[in-house]
Design a binder for these strands. Structure first.
Lengths: 174, 174
DNA sequence: CGATATGTAAAACGATCGTTTTACACCTGT
DNA sequence: ACAGGTGTAAAACGATCGTTTTACATATCG
């Protein structure tokens, strides 16, 4: 396998399951089967690696997100959460772990949030015929809240949030 | 001022604004105006201090939370967020920073989540006359989601979530 | 008065971290 | 055949962290 992807896959798995700070570069070197010299020749440092992991995670998440309608959106969130495990949004978690003080990481997190909100805004406009900011905020809250609450309530909370979002849109489209 | 409260207030401010890992014990000693010897005679260590901060935060949060109805619940969440700043739920953040590997901290976080869910369940039962788990999950998602999304969308998302929760309950009470 | 407790100031300890460096092996292309 | 790139293995570096310890001052109280 390609070195960059081997490194990236190991990093995403460890960062996600154990935490960014809890995963030292030593552990990463050991589990990726590479040497530290090679690792540091492929990425400038840990911060850059974290940013790369987040960028790849964003690509993979949006690639599987179905956006025809609200039902499909929350259904794919539920599938993602069941496949990956309910550990909360990785973008919030990295911000917590870095204290929001790492510019290259803040940039990726900001981009993710903008893209998520834009996607929901677009979905709302398509389903109701109008760009309703309040409605978009409500669905965004349900989306983020389902992700967060699923960590201790399980994935059923995602279905509950989905039903709520559908009611909202049905009422607005009427 | 009492030493324990001086220590606790400094710790909560720093942990909340800068992060748990980012705030070293050295910084805490300096800003509290105490000596490290005194600090370690009042708390067993950093983990115990973090747990204490979370317990106090939980007490303070629930003490100001109004629970007569959904409107009051979200109104007090908004006031809290505007007063304290929108940096996301501290209980999720500490879990991210510790990787969920510190038993004394997991205990406090778990207790907080149980208490929050029980509070919402009770509110739902009082407003609709029935213990509806799905409805409670929906309001919980709105609550957690508003807290999370407020970090990048501002406190207006809390008002949007509040309106949504009110609609849900009005429809269920009918 | 003298002992005990409790505080400060600051050095020191051991562990861990991210990163760099050294030493060496193995391909690859002209 | 040999120089240059790329890899491994492992030691080393400097910084920082949580925590403990030493040395000393002060106040309380039998």
């Amino acid at each position: 396998m390609d070195i960059d992807t081997r490194l990236l896959e190991t990093a995403e798995r460890l960062f996600d399951h154990e935490g960014f700070n809890a995963t030292g570069m030593g552990r990463l070197v050991r589990e990726s089967g590479l040497s530290s010299r090679t690792v540091y020749k492929h990425v400038t440092g840990k911060n850059a690696l974290m940013a790369k992991v987040l960028t790849e995670r964003q690509r993979r998440f949006f690639a599987q997100l179905e956006t025809q309608n609200t039902r499909a959106l929350f259904a794919s969130l539920r599938r993602w959460t069941e496949r990956e495990g309910a550990r909360g949004c990785l973008f919030f978690r990295v911000r917590a772990e870095t204290g929001g003080q790492t510019p290259e990481i803040e940039a990726v997190v900001g981009a993710y949030h903008e893209r998520l909100y834009a996607l929901i805004m677009d979905l709302v406009a398509r389903e109701t015929g109008a760009a309703d900011e309040v409605l978009a905020d409500q669905i965004l809250a349900l989306f983020e809240g389902a992700t967060a609450a699923a960590t201790y309530r399980g994935t059923t909370v995602i279905e509950a949030a989905a039903a709520c979002a559908e009611q909202l849109l049905a009422r607005a489209a009427r």
